[in-house]
């Protein structure tokens, strides 16, 4: 499919540049952290990085997720060049950022944003990556998410966010906390105007990300087994002086307690999102898909 065909129905103020995908040397084997089963990487990849033995969903980097979710794995990336600074002159932050960038050559920060299509439906997407700085939210993550929300608003497109995060970026202190308010305020505008937001929790989504945009989907989905919560298990166990059950804060636990619409297996994720998008294309309004 040609790019211009893909977007021929839409008008764009700017055409974001498409980012080439990276070539990653193949590892040979993977060992499941849940059940210990060893699998060939190729087999695991074919299985969308889900353990064939126990169903454990391995964590994905942002680009892997994009490859699985968007049509032809194509993303027209926004703000690819945006990167973090060290506003607090926090001890060790610059070095840590540099180390994270070197560890993840395809990522400049913990979120990738842009637009693409899912089963032909144009969407604005933001995909977080736990492998970059534990997916923590600092100024860049907050700004990119906010810009993605604003883009969806302006272009009258649905918004899809895959979250994964350890929480606030401590090294940016108060500025990272304020990203929670910034992203949520942007959602207030977008959703208030009728915009559709589908939020997908992936493993793990905790703290400041869980307690801001990620929980504000019109539809809140999660992958099986994904850890979702505000406070960490250890802190809670210390506070209440009790051992918590094994399934505490898992997606299934959260659904049981009324916090999620659906837990969706990775193999069904794209189709589920596609169905939701389709459900919103028939009515008039901002989230009109075509």
């Amino acid at each position: 499919m040609q790019i211009k065909d893909l977007f021929s129905k839409k008008k764009y103020a700017t055409i974001p540049s498409e980012r080439p995908k990276r070539d990653i040397p193949e590892g040979l084997m993977n060992k499941c952290s849940k059940c210990g089963t060893i699998q060939y990487s190729k087999e695991l990849d074919k299985n969308l990085k889900v353990c064939s033995s126990c169903g454990h969903h391995y964590r994905l980097s942002a680009w892997e997720r994009i490859g699985m979710t968007l049509d032809d794995g194509r993303l027209f990336e926004y703000d690819a060049e945006m990167e973090s600074v060290d506003p607090m002159e926090f001890p060790g932050y610059k070095g840590k950022l540099e180390q994270q960038r070197q560890k993840n050559p395809s990522l400049r920060e913990a979120v990738v944003t842009g637009e693409g299509t899912i089963n032909g439906h144009p969407v604005v997407v933001a995909v977080m990556s736990f492998d970059f700085f534990s997916g923590s939210m600092g100024s860049v993550v907050g700004e990119k998410i906010t810009r993605a929300i604003e883009a969806a608003h302006e272009k009258k497109l649905p918004l899809l966010i895959f979250s994964t995060s350890g929480g606030a970026r401590m090294q940016e202190s108060i500025l990272s906390l304020m990203q929670m308010a910034k992203t949520s305020a942007a959602l207030s505008m977008f959703q208030g105007a009728g915009g559709l937001f589908i939020s997908v929790f992936t493993d793990p989504t905790m703290g400041g990300v869980s307690a801001s945009f990620a929980s504000l989907g019109d539809y809140n989905l999660a992958e099986p087994g994904a850890l979702v919560g505000f406070a960490g298990r250890i802190v809670i166990e210390q506070t209440i002086r009790q051992k918590l059950p094994d399934n505490f804060q898992t997606a299934e636990f959260n659904m049981q307690h009324g916090q999620l619409d659906l837990v969706v297996h990775r193999k069904d994720m794209k189709v589920t999102i596609g169905k939701l998008l389709d459900m919103h294309t028939v009515r008039e309004g901002l989230s009109h898909g075509g």
Partner: peptide, 8 residues
């Protein structure tokens, strides 16, 4: 993409 060798 071919994924990296990782242990979740």
């Amino acid at each position: 993409d071919a994924p990296e060798m990782t242990e979740s």
